[in-house]
Design a protein around this nucleic acid. Structure first.
Lengths: 218, 218
DNA sequence: TGACTTTGACAAGATATAATGTCAGAATTT
DNA sequence: AAATTCTGACATTATATCTTGTCAAAGTCA
């Protein structure tokens, strides 16, 4: 992130300078995911990242200040991807039934299974690195929990905001899902996806029933 | 853990050699908790641990092979302490009602609040260190989830083993509690203990109701 | 073609830490 | 008192990594 001010922005291999820089940055992010997601953040050196990216150290410092910076970027990119995919799915879905909630869950679990490096990043590598990263993690979890609650309220009209806003129910549900997902990844994705999904859906049904009953009896 | 074989075991300051060694080990474990639980595992050097313990590096290697060894020991000691306290509480309690489950939860949350270093160890510092430590974590969570289920079944006779054994309900409940506790610690233990506890108890009631209804309708 | 930029390979200094070793003095036993 | 052991302070070696810098070759533009 140093002040590199090329007096002129030339094309190189047919591409503009800042575009090339961006491509290199992207390569480094991908290499970061590979390294952090397999050998782990602690055991990953900057040199290793650069080797994986097919670049030299200089280009690391072109786009990042330090290893922690890259970790944050990789983490945020995973979060962003998951959020975007989920929103897209919801907007695309015609009805807003339980099937939509199920599909969101499936998207989440499937993404982790298809790329276990992301699972490792989300659940393990991100923790205990530094206060700054801790804070990012806290925020991400809070947002996830808020999103989960919005989806639930959308598909289960029996749930309403006033009932939930002062409870830990959102956090508990998000926590349950996160923990089930993280244990599932530690257990090498056994039992298979469909089984996990039906079980999680079962949990959501429990929540729905319970809150509906609370609402009915009041 | 080298072969230190003193030809003779002398007393020193009135205590036997192996006893002194044990005391030093204990001091290092306590220093490890302090270091890992405040500045974090990654940023803790062996020298720092020894300074905190009031000992020199030599005595670290007297009882541990490496930093990771100490991390494992500190972690296990926290787990062991929590388990022992919980078992003691259950054995001491006369009835086996919901109040007992509530008391177990209180013990858990209270312990974390009283010593946030332990919370940090359990939830953050232990993750993503090495495959070996990951495995210890996995086992610990599995045991915790199994214990939680046993307590639940004990105080809520409506729950039974056959209903639960092939479900993720135990994992989900343990996950919810763990996550709520970890977020609570990240939020500097706000809201206060009693509020968190009543909310978690509310969750347990939800589970109880749900499973009771399932049993009744079958 | 000539001036300039971009790139990759590698050097180098600085820093930190792990892990073992040395040694003198204090404490203890016989 | 003499021999031995224990202890703490510090030295040392090895290793790893970060971060910046150098330089020549290749690419690009005018």
């Amino acid at each position: 992130m140093k002040n590199k001010k090329p007096l002129q922005q030339r094309k190189y291999s047919g591409v503009q300078a800042d575009l090339r820089t961006g491509e290199r940055k992207q390569k480094i992010i991908e290499a970061g995911l590979e390294a952090f997601g397999t050998i782990g953040y602690a055991k990953t050196s900057i040199k290793k990242i650069c080797n994986l990216a097919g670049l030299t150290e200089r280009y690391f410092y072109e786009s990042f200040d330090c290893k922690e910076d890259l970790l944050s970027t990789v983490y945020q990119s995973i979060i962003t991807e998951l959020t975007a995919k989920t929103l897209e799915l919801i907007n695309r879905s015609e009805d807003r039934s339980a099937a939509t909630a199920y599909a969101s869950l499936k998207l989440y679990f499937q993404t982790l299974q298809e790329d276990p490096r992301k699972a490792r990043m989300l659940f393990f590598e991100i923790l205990g690195v530094s206060p700054r990263i801790d804070e990012e993690y806290r925020k991400a979890i809070q947002e996830l929990s808020s999103h989960a609650m919005q989806i639930l309220m959308m598909v289960f009209p029996a749930l309403n905001y006033r009932q939930l806003k002062d409870t830990i129910l959102p956090a508990a549900i998000a926590g349950a899902i996160i923990q089930v997902a993280s244990q599932w990844s530690l257990n090498h994705f056994q039992p298979p996806l469909e089984k996990i999904l039906s079980q999680v859906a079962y949990l959501l049904k429990m929540v729905e029933d319970f809150v509906a009953e609370q609402a009915g009896s009041s």
